[in-house]
Amino acid sequence: MEYGYYPGCSLTGSAHRLDKGIKKVFAKQGHTLREIPDWNCCGAFEYGDRKELTGFSKRNLEKARGHFSEIVAPCPACYKNLKEADEEREFAVTHPLDLFDEAFFAAMKQARDLTGQVFTPYYGCILLRPKETAIQNTNIMEETIARFGGEVSGEAVKDRCCGGNQIFINKDVTEKLSRLVLDRSQGTIVVFCPLCHMAMKTFSGERKVVYYTDLLLHIMGEGGAL
């Protein structure tokens, strides 16, 4: 299947690993991601004027019109902004986590399992709230870990805020909130949001922080140890 792809700014920069990961996972499953032509920034969380913020994503939807009916946006902020801007529900704006269903795993070629490894699946905020734009299966990451034999930790903090969007405003805020999550969980932290990745990575010390796509690719046999 072909999807319209909205990478957003961070996936073309600091979150390039998530961009490559998503493209690889989709390619391995026989899906094509085709970028929305000349897309612009979604505005993330930076604009106080609701109309201005929505305007950014409306422009992107305009550029997708006639090319795509289903748009995939991996960055949670981009996904939320795009989905909210699509007031008439003209497109199926989808987060990749909602595409990792039973059919996906049935078709997935497994080369490794996660036995003996502990993971903290960490969703943060925007994937889970507000409910209008939340992902469908809010246990998908722990189900994946358990499915392939891994141990799940940190269930109580999976929806806490890491303070990622304050990292370049009030760093102490991010440190305190991220440490609350880190102190109440164990093992490798699995995230999907680039901001969560940066917040966790900055303060996680020896603990590893990986994208969910890294985890999938590891199970599929890509690369070395996680």
């Binding site: 889970l128 709230r129 990622g164 969007n165 304050q166």
Partner: peptide, 12 residues
């Protein structure tokens, strides 16, 4: 105003 992280826990 200074520290709201936009987590939407309140909205939820």
């Amino acid at each position: 105003v200074r520290f709201c992280t936009g987590c939407y826990r309140c909205t939820g």
